[in-house]
Simulated scan of single mutants.
Amino acid sequence: MDLSNARWRKSSRSNAAGGACVEVADGRPDVVAVRDSKDPAGPVLAFAPDAWRAFVTQVAPR
């Protein structure tokens, strides 16, 4: 998966002081890519868009 042109954004719930941040790549209709912001050259997790949406729905504050 080529993510060289991906636009990464940090979670709005990221803890800037502690550095515990995840980033999500925007602009890919076929996959949602997630990485650790402290290790941008490190591994990337890839999810099907439906699976990512289900995950976010389950963990979102209510």
Rank of each mutant, 00 (worst) to 15 (best):
A33H: 09
D39F: 12
W52N: 00
F47K: 01
F47C: 02
A51Y: 03
D50I: 01
A48E: 14
L45V: 10
D39K: 13
A25K: 04
A33N: 08
D30K: 06
D50R: 12
D36P: 06
D26Y: 14
A33M: 09
E23C: 03
S37F: 13
A41D: 14
P29A: 14
V34N: 10
L45K: 06
V31H: 09
D36K: 07
A33R: 06
V31S: 13
G42C: 06
R35S: 01
V32C: 08
R53W: 01
P29S: 14
A46R: 08
K38W: 04
P40L: 12
A48I: 00
P40D: 08
D30L: 07
D39T: 10
R28G: 01
A51P: 00
V31Y: 03
W52C: 01
A48W: 00
A25C: 10
V34M: 13
P40V: 11
D26Q: 15
V24L: 13
P40Y: 10
D26K: 15
R53E: 12
D50L: 11
V31K: 13
A51I: 08
A51S: 14
A46I: 01
A46K: 02
E23R: 02
R28Q: 04
K38L: 08
A25T: 04
A25E: 06
D50T: 11
V44T: 13
R28V: 03
P29K: 11
A33E: 05
G42Q: 07
R35I: 02
F47L: 11
A46T: 09
A41C: 00
A46G: 04
R53Y: 00
G27E: 12
